[in-house]
Amino acid sequence: MRIENHPILEFKHGKKVGFTFEGEELSGYEGEPIAAALHDHGVQVLRYSIRHNRPRGFFCAIGHCSSCLMEVDGIPNVRVCTEPLAAGMVVRRQRGKGELR
């Protein structure tokens, strides 16, 4: 969900762009972290952990904790809390360590 009407903040958004998440067409603002665009659509589960296959999501937002690793345009282990969204990105939940192709 986007925050509308904030009493003291005005959000400067980039232009609206389309991307896909697990094959579904979604939209977000160019340049915002992929994780922010996904949260807007209520997507909290970003990957499944390596050993116990547990759901993992956003946690630190500064690219340090490895909780939010996803597969973006075929590349695994992308930290989506700091990776800017671009038009046409193909974003998928990562399972385990991900695969390099």
Binding site: M1, R2, H39, Q44, S49, G57, A61, S67, C81
Partner: peptide, 25 residues
């Protein structure tokens, strides 16, 4: 404590104050 929806407070701040996205309701 590893479940999606358990967030650092600073991370929530970034999400809502910088990017204008609500972490939840």
């Amino acid at each position: 404590n590893d479940m999606p929806g358990v967030y650092g407070a600073g991370a929530v701040q970034t999400l809502m104050n910088v990017y204008g996205v609500a972490p939840g309701t």
